[in-house]
Design a protein around this nucleic acid. Sequence first.
DNA 1: TCTGGGGTCCTAGGACCC
DNA 2: TCTGGGGTCCTAGGACCC
Length: 431
Amino acid sequence: MSSEPSLPGGRIALVDVNNFYVSCERVFDPALEGRPVVVLSNNDGCVVARSEEAKQLGIATGTPWFKVAPEAGRWGLVARSSNYELYGDLSARVMEVLGRFGSWQEVYSIDECFLGLPGDERQLLGTAARIRSAVMRHVGVPVCVGVAGTKTLAKFVNHIAKRNPHMQGVCSLDSMPAAEVARIQSRVPVTGLWGVGGRTAKRLNAMGIETVADLKAADPQLIRKRFSVVLQRTVLELNGTACIPHSEERADKQQIMFSRSFSTPVTTAEEMDQVMAVYAQRGAARMAAQGLNASVLTVTAGTSRFAGGEKSFPSASARLPVPTQDPIQLTRAAVATMRTCISEGTQYVRAGVLFTGLEPADGQQTLDPFVSDLDQRHIGDLLGSVRAKFGEAAIGLGQGGLAVPAAWSMKRDFSSPRYTTEWSDLPVVRA
DNA sequence: TCTGGGGTCCTAGGACCC
DNA sequence: TCTGGGGTCCTAGGACCC
């Protein structure tokens, strides 16, 4: 991966999949085409993705499902539980196709990436159109492509491509008349930019900076002084100076988290022990997959932010005696640490385990002196291979090994099959 | 009745050392 | 005994993203 943000004359494309989760569902269920569709968060809690038709109905991201469910029948609205096995797999396929077009590629999220596009400016629109049709042909999901000289501008013109159907999903800044660009920038509020959220916008507005054009004209030094180097970069990038570096392939993660809300509140310490056993093992499996050991563990719990009654968000940290990814030690530490900070009878609706102080495991396991070496050395590998063969729920330690889901475990009422990652879920085609 | 789950980066402030 | 300032490391919290 190149460390140069852009070669002279080179351009950056921001490619993202339209309504990614919904588009994934449609690949395997074409009957969803043209219908309003939403994908729900864990526990079928709230709307995290919407088709165009669902947006037309006025359903906002983050709307709790129970608020729209009563209207679903009347609207012909289809809901799906989130199916991350499917989305993750299709994402990898999309990224592989996109990677063929760039001199470099930076995968930014599950559904978008930046690509380096060298070459003649006059050919950029053609390249963008070819990218679009390649992804549609090979994976079957629609994308939009924005091309400009900096990442911030590429994001911005991608937005323009999305909003203007006549552009057919592609927009290149070089192909737009300067007056047209200025006109659009003077109408779009600053929150339309990558990196500018509600809080920052409020403070900018107080200074009289309301639109993208206003921010572009602002003094970078002043912005740095009043805000941060991050916002200063936004100003520079709006003016064509590429200054957001590539984040290289992120092998060096800073933290690993496993956090979930419950389908039913947890009120006793015994139940919370079970939760910690399951969550710590899930986190440990992630660390094993990435070859990392943790030296600090933090547990968190929380009551509902919406229900009346007492609110509390306890959390506690513990330094591990030695950095480890061992599920036994991590489970024991998580259970004990959580016991120190929760109170019996409180209605907790969520909990999490966070691992930090990560370092490469280097193949050598650190062993707990109170458990036989032989058992420990093999237990992580053993759990991993059993899960790979028989599925995630096949085996676990202690309460984590319960075959019957606990009362608090996740709800996924409208899940689609894992078409591409589970043999038993392969779609059947009849001719 | 029912409201997500990950992450990143930056900054400020305290502890500690020289 | 009193006083100074710079540097580093760590953590908590804020803001943002998808």
